[in-house]
Design a protein around this nucleic acid. Sequence first.
DNA 1: AGCACGCCGACT
DNA 2: GTCGGCGTGCTC
Length: 802
Amino acid sequence: MSVAKVIVDVPAKQINQTFDYSIPSKLEHVITPGMRVTVPFGPRKVMGFVLQIVPESSFAKLKSITDVLDLTPVLTDELLKLGQWLAEETISLYITAYQVMLPQALKSQYKKELVRLTDGELTPDLESLFAGRDVVTYEEFTQSMIPYHQLLKAIHRGDIQVDYLVKSRITKKTETMIKPAIANHLLEEAYLDMPKQAKKQRELLTYFIQNPEAIKKKQLMSKVNTSASTVKTLLQKGLLTSNKLEVYRNPYNDNAIQRTASLPLTIQQEQAIIPIKQAIAEKIHDVFLLHGVTGSGKTEIYLQAIEDVIKEGKEAIVLVPEISLTPQMVHRFKGRFGSDVAVMHSALSSGEKYDEWRKIYRKEVKVVVGARSAIFAPFENLGIIIIDEEHETSYKQEDQPRYHARDVAIERGKNHQCPVILGSATPTLESYARANKDVYKLATLSKRTNEKDMPEVEIVDMRNELHQGNRTMFSRKLKEKIEACLQKKEQVVLMLNRRGYSTFVMCRDCGHVKECPHCDIALTYHKNSNRLKCHYCSYEEPMPTVCPECSSDLIRYFGTGTQRVEEALTQLIPEASIIRMDVDTTRRKGAHEKLLNKFGRGEADILLGTQMIAKGLDFENVTLVGVLTADSMLHLPDFRSSEKTFQLLTQVSGRAGRHELPGEVIVQTYTPDHYSIELASTYNFTDFYLKEMAMRKTFHYPPYVFLALITVSHPNQVKVVQTTQKIVQSLLASVKEDTIILGPTPSPMARIKDRYRYQCMVKYKNEPNLRNIIRNIVNQFDDDIQKDDLLIAVDMQPYQMM
DNA sequence: AGCACGCCGACT
DNA sequence: GTCGGCGTGCTC
Ligand SMILES: [Zn+2]
Ligand SMILES: [Zn+2]
């Protein structure tokens, strides 16, 4: 009798270990590692992942696996190993690490039911609850207000039983197929027997006599021009039969995508791809940093490398930032690889995501293009992993398990002995430094494939504008350029990269800003409900008519940054038609796409938006890009703010003059001398890298050190500070001398949902044991975590300092 | 986590 | 005797 080691779906620290279960004989050769099973756990029944099957257990009496949920493992051997690595690396629970690798649709849901076992009398209360039924949901009981004791007694007496159900939320889309139930000559006989007035039925039979193969019901109905009821009659007569065929949802209607062939490579592209192809052929795990300016043809290199991988019979993962995962991007991959491509976009519905995942699971595709979570695609023969726009912060997951897709990619690259490619026009300092130290292999594409220069960037000092009495957000230079552009019937892209874009409410008399009573953040105004809401908790209140501080009635809401700029712009250049793109106008699914298409068709002169417009736009008629406030990110409490500014300016500049028409860029700033702005304006990545590296060295930031961030939260501020202080102390005692421990410091969001938040930052160079040290220190507070509502969150790869 | 069990005090 | 409210301990 063999034993299964199972990780159960109970996300708690005490349960973070395998539990042994015996395998019933009927499942003996069915269950393999990586499958989902249901197991009894205490009085409950829960889902679990089988990690391992061993001959025996050190446990005396084992419970037995109740059921198996998969026919083939949903987690490959490599993913089982990867999950363990992920949990340990990010200090997360095993179960959360495994769950994050699978589509949401596979997550189990739990239900409790009360089952009546006796025919005898129950208490009147319970009789009215059951009301003649044998089974009621536990929820019905809770809502019935019947005292718990009554139920407990009935359970003890054996009159009622509690059933624990494990439900899956899987929805498979099916299509009804119709085909003849009998042989063709019998159909012909049936046709002859059919009364003349049964015109539609005869038509249907005629169709099937000519086309005996199965057909989709919908298709049939439109072809024969008949109704569902006619089909139903023939089904009932036993002449036709139907069955449900499982089909994939097709979110990208891609039947008509034109296949494309490889493009010829430039000399630079050729040089870059040779070592990559070599690594693929020789099955070597290497990380390549592909540093290529916008328009230098990185994607073509990806495509041709993948072609090699597919020729070897292997598979490829391509990660693309959410916002760049546009239909055009999908077309590029499907155009080259056809139906061999699955697309994992987080805007897809849960069912659509499940379908895309299943294409990989069933080995129906060779390539997946997707956002962060696609890194866990269940391929078994990976030949390459590509991360485009490697510097994008969206590759970092901000909730448990807090992983960076880049780290996972490299781990999987090791597991499969395959190359990993990091591509970017503005690589992170971390990656570039590793390339300089030969940890990664560097390939540079310094020229655009169309041989055009990057557009000219002009910096405008907004302080001068102010001195000369221009109080608007538009410099005279920018205004002139926009007008000139409109005259030539060319288009303009304007970017406002300001934070705090949401609408808030302020009193014009006393300056009072309405804040959430539970969080340290301003409430945002929602126009449709005329209410103020908090984005961090569920608090909301009606929009006040007078200021609660000074009773002035001049309390007003201020539109989003882009909204206000739009108004100002309309005043300045009334004849310009503007499309505004920000969180407000792109909230609905597909809205982003729609606005861009509208702009692409030339239905507006100016596209005004937040940083979301910096990426991937490619419109030939855009000749001017304006950045309204280039320095607005520089003052944020984030050591990456210079880097982010440089990246954003470089990216947005690439939006101008991508085709025949030459482009230009105007960057407005109050700090024109800042190196990130100056060097971005000359596309000088190398000097920026050197300068910023020097800064990071002086202030002890990555890549010179690694970071770990520990955030403590609790309703009592004193408790939070004390706990954080204790953690700092414990860390200092167990860590090397050159490791820096900072804290306790209030978190940038110092209070959320009535919980105060303090943090402690660890800066270290070499602490091979740090994860264990932190785990042990956090364990010391287990009591308070369990009983006193204390929370300690650890982030081993902090990006957002929140 | 989520559930049972047991002990206590309040209420009828 | 009946009820709800916690604190404690366990889950193969
Ligand atoms: Zn006021
Ligand atoms: Zn709030």
